[in-house]
């Protein structure tokens, strides 16, 4: 017999799995975790996740980590589903997640592009170390699909920026 407590437990375990590329964030902070359910008859746990970017190679690690974490917590029958709808955007990231990112030295997403079109404008990105808005983009593509590389013109520190998406 599945109880609400077990479902909450499974949710807590799944939500605590860390993103392999930004380990300071959990998949719940990131908005990658969409749903956790338990089949009442069989006790099968179904976890639904969504990719940040289509080619994100972290999805396979996240899937394996979910299996390991849930099985260690006693859920022996675990199914991981992937959904593409609704598509992930940076709006799915929690405010707590954005604060954790800043503390980790990664500038969080600033919101949607100010002007959309073939030659877009974007809002200033705040330096996660000294909070200066005098920053510049060094490279539009960074160490992972979801980040770009920036530099602060006041403290001169280079930093990652989690792109608006």
């Amino acid at each position: 017999m599945v109880t609400t407590t077990q479902l909450d437990h499974a949710r807590a375990i799944a939500g605590a799995v860390a993103d392999p590329e930004v380990p300071v964030l959990t998949i719940a902070d990131l908005g990658v975790l969409r749903d956790v359910g338990i089949e009442p008859e069989t006790g099968t746990v179904t976890v639904t996740i969504t990719p940040t970017y289509s080619g994100c190679p972290a999805m396979e690690t996240i899937r394996d980590d979910l299996h390991l974490a849930l099985e260690a917590a006693g859920f022996t029958d675990v199914v991981i589903d992937l959904t593409l709808t609704p598509a992930w955007t940076t709006d799915w990231m929690s405010d707590e997640g954005k604060q954790k990112l800043t503390a980790y030295g990664i500038a969080p997403p600033t919101g949607r592009s100010a002007v959309r079109g073939p030659i877009p404008l974007t809002l200033a990105v705040k330096c996660p170390r000294c909070s200066s808005l005098r920053t510049k983009e060094l490279a539009r593509f960074g160490s992972t699909s979801c980040k770009s590389l920036w530099q602060c013109e006041d403290c001169l520190e280079p930093f990652d920026h989690f792109k608006n998406h």
Binding site: P51, S54, G55, R140, F141, S145
Partner: peptide, 20 residues
């Protein structure tokens, strides 16, 4: 080197689309 990363990232996105 930034373009190694950029073109690699673009290729990765496209590969993700192709897989789906």
């Amino acid at each position: 080197i930034e373009e190694d990363v950029a073109l690699g990232n673009i290729a990765l996105d496209l590969l993700g689309h192709a897989r789906s």
